[in-house]
């Protein structure tokens, strides 16, 4: 031990401090959350589903919102803001599902309105015919 110079002794002690610090940083970088793949996939499927039921015609606002949120989620992934990306993907999915539900309601109401109209026409024609026969 008395054989090492003073400078050698100082370098070794610095090294003992430096190595743990480097290890600490590596650990900190490794704790970035993973890409929210499940949420992103679910969002994509919901949007595809909405397009299939023609949500673009009956609920264009909600479908547009879903698409915007999904794009924002993907941008957040690029920026490694994984938690926000996960939220945005979940919101995109909620928007898409609302678009689907809104579309179903719109179509159902349209069918009913159609039926009411044709019944009314039938009744009107009937009354007209009776009127003529007198």
């Amino acid at each position: 031990m008395y054989s090492l110079s003073k400078s050698a002794r100082v370098s070794r002690s610095r090294l003992r401090i430096a190595v743990p610090v480097v290890l600490l940083f590596t650990a900190a970088c490794a704790s970035t959350p993973p890409i929210p793949s499940a949420s992103l996939q679910a969002a994509q499927q919901s949007i595809a589903n909405a397009e299939r039921v023609e949500a673009g015609t009956h609920a264009p606002a909600q479908l547009g919102e879903a698409r915007n949120k999904l794009s924002a989620a993907q941008r957040a992934v690029d920026e490694e803001k994984m938690i926000v990306a996960g939220w945005l993907a979940d919101e995109a999915r909620a928007d898409a599902e609302l678009a689907v539900a809104t579309t179903s309601a719109a179509k159902a109401n349209a069918v009913n309105a159609d039926m009411k109209r044709s019944t009314a026409t039938l009744v009107e024609e009937m009354q007209r015919k009776t009127g003529d026969s007198r």
Binding site: E91, A94, L98, A101, S104, A105
Partner: peptide, 11 residues
Amino acid sequence: RKVDTAKAQAE
């Protein structure tokens, strides 16, 4: 969104 969805489904 979920409340709105439930309402639309009910309608």
